[in-house]
């Protein structure tokens, strides 16, 4: 078995009631790899991400992290979730806590780390995303882009092995999208393993090692970005890219 494989999703199936939202989806993610998941709304890409950290249960297949199956009945999710950072589309900071309190909550209460140490880490991370001066602010005093950067820091401070991004720029004003994407590019350069669900095609092309195209609960195509964007391998991905006006124009 390839030792570089960090995450292995093996033919997972998921139902919402009668409706099948994931149909035998399989995907492997290597250490340090950036995987971008694309697809029309409602194709199951967010659900795929949410299955990885157990926010949704699955009805078939399995998911392994570091070679250990994490989709069993006795899975200790509190341990697994420390290894999986997740940032959501909605601005999900805790509104009654300051930026710093938001960041420190999980390392203090879940990992029981020393407050002094994690505070140093938190300030370093805040500086890295350009928000050191906001450490005492409340979420309501921040712009959408700033909140998402704090949410990224809040996930990073747990020292995750992999980061999941679920359309983190979809609810942002256009002028704020860049500041968030820049942080993600920075993380990619630092070697973080990431699975990103997005609608930002340019960004996907720039950051991805691998594009996963989903439609109707199925993974239709997995390709390198230059192949996917210039020469999509399936008719469905072709059609999807046409809608974005993103077929080859050279």
């Amino acid at each position: 078995m390839d030792n570089n494989i960090l995450l292995k999703i093996d033919e997972i199936t998921k139902f919402f009631g009668e409706h099948k939202v994931l149909n035998k989806a399989s995907l492997t993610v290597e250490k340090g790899e950036i995987v971008v998941v694309l697809g029309p709304s409602g194709c199951g890409k967010s659900t795929l991400l949410r299955c990885i950290n157990g926010l949704e249960d699955i009805q078939g297949g399995s998911i392994s992290l570091d070679g250990n199956v994490i989709t069993q009945k006795d899975t200790r999710w509190t341990e697994i979730r420390q290894k999986i950072g997740m940032v959501f589309q909605s601005y999900d900071l805790f509104p009654h806590m300051t930026v710093l309190q938001n960041i420190l909550l999980a390392p203090l209460r879940v990992q029981h780390r020393k407050k002094q140490d994690i505070k140093e880490d938190a300030l370093k991370l805040l500086e890295r995303v350009g928000l050191l001066d906001k450490k005492a602010s409340y979420p309501s005093e921040l712009s959408g882009g700033q909140r998402q950067r704090v949410a990224i820091v809040r996930a990073l401070i747990m020292n995750p092995e992999i980061m999941l991004f679920d359309e983190v720029t979809a609810a942002l004003d256009p002028e704020m999208v860049h500041e968030v994407l820049d942080v993600m590019l920075d993380l990619a350069k630092a070697g973080m393993t990431m699975v990103i669900v997005t609608h930002e095609m340019q960004f996907a092309k720039a950051i991805a090692d691998k594009i996963v195209f989903m439609d109707n609960g199925e993974i239709v195509e997995i390709s390198k970005p230059d192949i996917f964007f210039n020469n999509p391998q399936t008719e469905r991905s072709q059609r999807f890219l046409n809608k974005f006006n993103y077929t080859e124009k050279r």
Binding site: R81, I84, F88, D92, F94, L105, R109, V110, A155
Partner: peptide
């Protein structure tokens, strides 16, 4: 209290009672 408040607490590896104690109840009281 929006659903994503429960979810982001859960995604941060907090246990259910911790999500209530630190995130949901303080906001409910407010």
């Amino acid at each position: 209290i929006p659903k994503h408040q429960f979810e982001s607490g859960t995604a941060l590896a907090l246990k259910k009672h911790q999500v209530y104690l630190y995130i949901i109840i303080p906001q409910t009281i407010r």
